[in-house]
Design a protein around this nucleic acid. Structure first.
Lengths: 342, 342
DNA sequence: CCGGATTCTGGGAGCGCTCCCAGAATGGAG
DNA sequence: CTCCATTCTGGGAGCGCTCCCAGAATCCGG
């Protein structure tokens, strides 16, 4: 063997030679296998440190068939990902949780249908051991495409398509909406409207259903009291304006997102309504940077994206360790954070 | 060779056999090398398609010593990354630009000094071909640590430590601030204050310097007219309140971020000042979701993070293709977007 | 002191790919 | 038809690692 030049990275062979043991023993010591004498283990570890050895990931995963990386796939149009802090939290949380298990995070965005083939090709290319996927839109082709891959997938939120037989971690959107509306009811409000999210989005549909549940269980008729939005602020303002025209005596509004609640508040203010005196407002998401900062501070349904990601990563890890986990949806509970708006 | 079982992924060898050529020829066809007859090329491509072949990345990078992945490292405390949409844009932009060159993006967050060793270890582990690093804080140990690695690094913004001999793509913060202040001056304002960002942040320091430049070149004395913030909204409100107390007759304010401009506007409103009649307000960043939505819409220094990322990726690619690029900072120009606040 | 279990070690094979090299096929020019 | 250049092909080696297996060293009860 020619002497390895200064600037080449040392290999396991080099470490073994330096430590005076065989490649096998060095490998065992580094991966703390059983059956290595503490003497050779120390020699190997010392040699590795001294030579600045770090294992070649490619060689390792060639034989182990594991990459140590997990993809996080966000299937949402760019605009949504950019101004929804939920995704920032998800990305950061996923990174933390994955790093804690020693896995790397590979981020992928799927902006449009055109991105799907590229994404699938990559995912099946063996670059990652599994994928955490957020694809909330009805009719999103991605989940269907992923079915065909032999790749562990865990969904965040209910996938828009493909219902059964997948691993998913969702929030209890319906119960959260009920919680919000029941609170409005308990403060004596009777004309409780809602601004929905995009209804091709299961979470939006569930929140609408929860609102309807609570009204009907109180003997109230939800007809004409809901208006569609798209989760973003301007749509909340627009929808609220429409509702005010249609239901001038409304005294409560449940918005399916905090941003829309903010928009709704603007419309209410413009219409001369006081919050919460005239109209109680409740949002959904309890975004830490938004809800408490509003004027008045927003009562909102609290969900913990970090907890969701934690569950997703945990599920992924048991999938990867070969446990035969039965595909099922985990539903995380949500709570109501009371502030001043209702 | 035993027949390959149904659920095993086909290898290059399988494709070659199926196409009736050798492994070498198959490899050449797939990587469109020269010197492959169009007949065998087509046979190979067909076979690959038919078998659903996708190359084993680990095997490939074992021999090519290339991973096809680039890390994007954000060295900022969690809170900052989460509510600064700049980072969302950067992440998304980097993903797009890298994807366009066929590279994958590996995201890494460095929350605190404790994360540095782990990050460095990973980066030197040969998982990625290079790194795009955002580490704007003075005294951040990361850039120093990265110096020692033989890994191509391109910085976004001026790195807080390590000035010379690195590749960096920054905005012209100083010129941007001058632009803003000169505009305030041109509308007859004389008592122009500033709310700065964290001053351990080169961008914040540069913006402060630009403000000072413009005042002194107009023969005005900047003393006592600046107040420190931290780029976030509450600090803008706080700083503005302080400034109003200290400089009751102020008629202009340049905030080093849009968020602080929003905070400043709150404080001005609370003090009964009208914008822009009594006080002209200019922000920095021109955040698309914030600046135009403010009341009144905010005049702001416009920078294009997407352009920055594009430059960074381009530099990275020429670094990776072995061009001997001389380390240097690229400074991107900024412009002033005029709206109603000044 | 023997012999079987236990602990430890080294060599070989092989993961799936690219690259080098030798040689086969092809194509004109002489 | 010959000969050399050009185009194309296949086999072998090897990237750096893990894992299997055979054998060496050690231990301990009888």
């Amino acid at each position: 063997m020619p002497p390895r030049s200064q600037d080449e990275r040392p290999t396991l062979e080099d470490v073994a030679a330096y430590a005076g043991v065989s490649r096998s023993t060095a490998s065992r010591a580094l991966n703390d296998d059983a059956y290595v004498s503490s003497r050779s283990r120390e020699k190997v570890l010392g040699a590795a440190r001294e030579l600045g050895y770090s294992p070649n990931q490619a060689a390792r995963s060639l034989v182990t068939r594991r990459t140590g990386a997990v993809a996080v796939v966000l299937s949402e149009p760019e605009s949504k990902v950019l101004d929804d802090p939920y995704f920032a939290t998800v990305m950061h949380g996923a990174y933390r949780e994955l790093a804690a298990t020693g896995a790397q995070m590979l981020l992928m965005f799927v902006d449009s249908r055109e991105d799907v083939p590229r994404t699938v090709r990559f995912l099946e290319g063996g670059h990652v051991d599994g994928a955490l996927v957020f694809a909330p839109h009805q009719g999103d082709p991605l989940p269907t495409a992923l079915r065909l891959l032999r790749l562990p997938v865990v969904y965040g939120g209910r996938p828009g398509s493909v219902r059964r037989g997948v691993h998913a971690v969702d929030f209890d959107n319906r119960a959260g909406a009920r919680l919000a509306v029941r609170h409005l009811l308990s403060t004596g409000r009777r004309r409780i409207t809602t601004v929905t999210g995009m209804l091709d989005h299961p979470a939006a549909a569930d929140r609408l259903a929860g609102w309807r549940d609570a009204l009907t269980e109180a003997g109230l008729d939800p007809a004409g009291l809901s208006e569609a939005g798209d989760f973003l602020m301007p749509s909340g303002e627009r929808a609220m304006t429409t509702l005010l025209r249609r239901v001038p005596d409304l005294d409560g509004v449940f918005a399916a997102s905090d941003a829309m609640a903010a928009g709704a508040m603007r419309a209410l203010r413009a219409a001369g309504k006081r919050v919460p005196t005239d109209v109680g407002v409740i949002g959904f998401d309890d975004q830490p940077t938004l809800a408490p900062a509003m004027d008045p501070p927003l009562t909102s349904v609290h969900q913990d994206p970090r907890e969701q990601v934690r569950h997703m990563v945990r599920t992924m890890m048991s999938l990867l360790s070969g446990d035969n986990v039965r595909p099922e949806s985990t539903i995380l509970p949500v709570t109501l954070t009371l502030r001043d708006s209702a």
